[in-house]
Design a protein around this nucleic acid. Structure first.
Length: 799
DNA sequence: CAGTGAGCGAGCTTCCGCTTGACTT
């Protein structure tokens, strides 16, 4: 509408009537660009995606009428549709220019139907790049709406509705209200659940890794150090130790020096999924944040469309990239590369994600926007650059009297090529050790051992998924689309199937045997605590829902289900089968399993008996309650109410033991009296705390609430009194303004709102005027974007 | 960012894909 009004204004000014040619695209940003190319005869409007869909709250698939879909225009689309209608009525020819894929074809068809268009005045066109020639060419080569492709979309839509709206109610009844299941989200949860079980079942294996430092004379006659690792790892301490002992009185010689050329090739340009992965690895962005920033860049005309599975670059982009690279680094840094998409189910309606103007090396904007743009620019440029040429050298060292060899490896970059601008990150950066340059040495040369050590190492469990690595897995399996990756990841967290948290791995002890100056020393060392950030793990509900679904609906939960139905959709698109026939085949097999799962067995899914409470002799259960996982002692009866306790956030129904479950009932626990008030200890939403009258005090980190004593509690109360006394720095009572000491330093508070104090000001010296000024300044500042977006998202999804 | 701290037998939940705005502790 916005575009339309501008348009009308322009024409009013020049006294021309509304044009008779209308082009409808999906995205407003795209409409704006195209309008410039087409000139005054054309009006370009956008549908903003689908304009019609199945009813939001109803099943809307008529099972008695050959699966006829019941479509409606959503309320928030009505105004847009009205405007499109007005424009269409005034136009002689309407070009439907939605994307060239299943969904795009359906959008064109819905427009055709809703706007009451006729074959005579309608043209269906598609273009893959937004340039004047591409668009003009498209306009000159129109076609008709492909109804087979539309049917394939209707089949997709109806199938998803049937699966989602028949499965979810089963979960409401058998597990918990307001849960959800679907073709995409349920399998996504399954991936996380299965990974967690792999981790739980994982047994770390120990082995001894032997490293050594030698002193050696290089070809220049200079003494240098050479680090080396034994090619074999020992499985026992005894073997490792006896090897080191054998090193005391033996000789070492260089047995082989091998130099091999190698090359490294740049990664293809970004798709939605690879952009999400790199932004996650390089900046730690959650996938939703990456998409919001990318959307901003797209709307500002800085980058091409951000929801794409294509790695293709337009001829224009290839040309400007070449020019940039040659200008920047010279001819030999440029290699023309055309990439082809290999991911399953790719529909390639767009280009890869790239800067709109490749000659623009940097942009204005927020820090996050700059970072993401820079990443996209570098990746695009690098994808058109030459391979890096590397020389790999391997030196193997013979240990006299032993079959095991020490090996040193080194790398020299002979020609940096694309590495000049960009290197893709890997998921396990910590395992990568920098490979340096090796000294020049000769064959059969002797070496002096300076020191050697055998360190006990453990195999690592498979890594938990991050949001981005989970997206990569989904793409690999062909599940979900670029536009749904981020929303799916949000859904499974909002439904509380998976949790994103920091996981602290407890420190392990390991053995270290060192050899230095002919002496062997044995030590026991402690590993550092490692913290995994932003890793996804299933909740109790996630486990239970997943197991329930896989038990009753193995076909839907199969990782190949999407791939299988995609085959059917392809056949529908090719006109080989009828879409309702295909849905009928599916429904006839699927629906009975829903009926069967609904049969009430009297027990809730996932309920598990842990054992008997020794105190009361009553059974102890875990199950999913109204607010998540709970332990229950005793069964419900008319005479007795069972006891309940919620599981802690780090416990799951899957792994909790009887002992841990019973511990939950020890709290809240009264520790005793202090100054005529009783002190109790308990665990709340934010961890363990003690309560003293009306005051709550969190326990220090690592303090087990069950180990709390009255003495420790009194200490905490005293400490709290001191901090409270120091809390207030200054007060201006007449304006309700206080300057307080908080967890993050001093701050100003007024009427329940808090304000920052700039670092260069001394809190104690602030005057009332200073405070008032800081408050008004803070109010004038725009609010943070991140908080804005997140808040909204929660609201709309919880509604 | 600056504080918080249950409840566990009664009310309307849910899908996937295409796209952009409208909201404030």
């Amino acid at each position: 509408m916005f575009l339309c009004t501008i348009f009308q204004m322009n024409h009013k000014k020049r006294g021309i009537t509304m044009p008779k040619k209308l082009v409808i695209v999906e995205s407003p940003a795209k409409a704006k660009t195209i309008e410039k190319f087409l000139g005054d005869d054309y009006s370009v409007m956008s549908s903003k995606g689908h304009i019609r869909d199945l009813k939001e709250k109803e099943f809307s698939v008529d099972l008695n009428n050959n699966y006829k879909p019941l479509y409606e225009i959503p309320a928030d689309k009505q105004e847009l549709v009205n405007n499109l209608q007005k424009a269409a009525d005034k136009s002689d020819i309407i070009w439907l220019a939605s994307d060239e894929d299943r969904e795009g074809e359906a959008i064109a068809w819905h427009l055709y139907e809703v706007l009451g268009l006729t074959e005579a005045k309608t043209r269906r066109i598609v273009f893959h790049e937004i340039t004047k020639t591409a668009i003009q060419k498209a306009i000159e080569n129109p076609r008709h709406i492909n109804l087979n492709l539309v049917d394939a979309q209707q089949a997709r839509r109806v199938l998803d509705r049937i699966v989602g709206f028949e499965l979810s109610p089963v979960l409401w009844k058998k597990i918990k209200p307001a849960l959800s299941a679907g073709r995409v989200q349920s399998v996504t949860v399954r991936l996380v659940v299965e990974r967690e079980r792999e981790i739980n079942n994982f047994k770390a294996e120990a082995s001894y890794r032997v490293t050594a430092i030698f002193n050696v004379t290089d070809t220049q006659g200079k003494d240098v150090e050479l680090k080396s690792e034994l090619s074999k790892r020992f499985t026992t301490k005894e073997e490792a130790k006896s090897f080191l002992e054998a090193c005391i009185n033996t000789t070492f010689t260089i047995e082989q020096i091998e130099t091999k050329p190698a090359k490294q090739t740049p990664a293809p340009p970004f798709t939605t999924s690879t952009l999400q992965q790199e932004a996650s690895r390089k900046f730690g962005f959650p996938v939703g944040l990456t998409m919001r920033i990318a959307q901003k860049l797209y709307e500002a005309g800085k980058i091409t469309y951000m929801r794409t599975d294509s790695v293709n670059l337009s001829d224009l982009a290839l040309g400007t990239a070449k020019q940039e690279i040659i200008e920047m680094a010279g001819e030999k840094y440029h290699t023309f590369r055309q990439y082809h998409t290999k991911s399953k189910g790719a529909q390639e309606a767009h280009e890869a994600i790239r800067p709109t103007y490749i000659n623009q090396h940097a942009i204005e904007g927020t820090l996050q926007e700059k970072k993401l743009y820079d990443l996209i620019w570098k990746r695009t440029i690098a994808s058109q650059m030459s391979d890096a040429q590397i020389e790999k050298t391997t030196i193997s060292i013979n240990v006299n009297g032993k079959t095991e060899k020490f090996v040193s490896t080194g790398e020299i970059i002979k020609f940096d090529g694309f590495l000049k601008v960009y290197l893709e990150s890997t998921d396990d950066d910590q395992e990568q050790e920098a490979k340096g340059i090796l000294p020049k040495l000769s064959l059969n040369q002797p070496l002096q051992l300076i020191s050697a050590e055998a360190q006990e190492r453990f195999t690592q469990h498979p890594p938990r998924y991050t949001e981005a690595s989970l997206v990569r897995k989904l793409e690999e399996l062909g599940i979900g689309r670029p536009s749904t990756y981020a929303p799916t990841i949000s859904t499974i967290q909002n439904r509380e199937y998976v949790d994103k948290k920091e996981i602290e791995n407890p420190p392990r002890t390991y053995e270290l045997i060192t050899l230095r100056k002919g002496q062997i020393k044995e030590e026991i060392k402690k590993e550092k605590v490692t913290i995994e950030k932003g890793k996804l793990s299933p909740t109790s509900i996630g486990f239970v829902v997943n197991d329930f679904l896989t038990q009753h609906f193995p076909d839907i939960m199969n990782y190949n289900f999407t791939a299988k139905v995609e085959n059917d959709f392809d056949e529908i698109a090719e006109g080989k089968i009828n879409w309702t026939k295909s849905i009928d085949n599916f429904y006839k097999a699927f629906h009975p399993s829903v009926e069967e799962a609904m049969i009430n067995t009297g027990k809730k899914a996932g309920e598990r008996q842990l054992g008997i409470d020794p105190k009361t002799g009553k059974p102890v259960f875990v199950k999913i309650g109204r607010f998540g996982a709970v332990v229950q002692i005793g069964e419900k009866s008319p005479v007795e109410k069972p006891q309940f306790a919620s599981l802690r956030s780090n416990q799951t129904l899957e792994t909790i033991t009887l002992e841990e479950a019973l511990d939950l009932f020890k709290l809240p626990m009264t520790l005793g009296q202090y100054e005529n008030e009783s002190i109790t200890v308990s665990v709340g939403r934010f961890g363990p705390y003690i309560r003293y009258g009306k005051t709550f005090i969190s326990l220090p980190k690592g303090q087990d609430p069950l180990e709390m004593t009255i003495e420790k509690a009194i200490e905490l109360i005293k400490a709290k009194r001191i901090t409270d006394a120091n809390r207030q720095i200054k007060s201006f009572d007449e304006d309700n303004i206080l300057i307080l000491n908080g967890r993050f330093g001093a701050y100003i508070t007024q009427n329940g709102k808090n304000y920052k104090i700039p670092k260069d000001m001394t809190p104690a010296e602030l005057t009332l005027e200073d405070c008032k000024r800081l408050i008004t300044e803070a109010a004038a500042k725009p609010k943070k974007q991140l908080a804005k977006g997140m808040k909204h998202f929660k609201k709309t999804t919880k509604k």
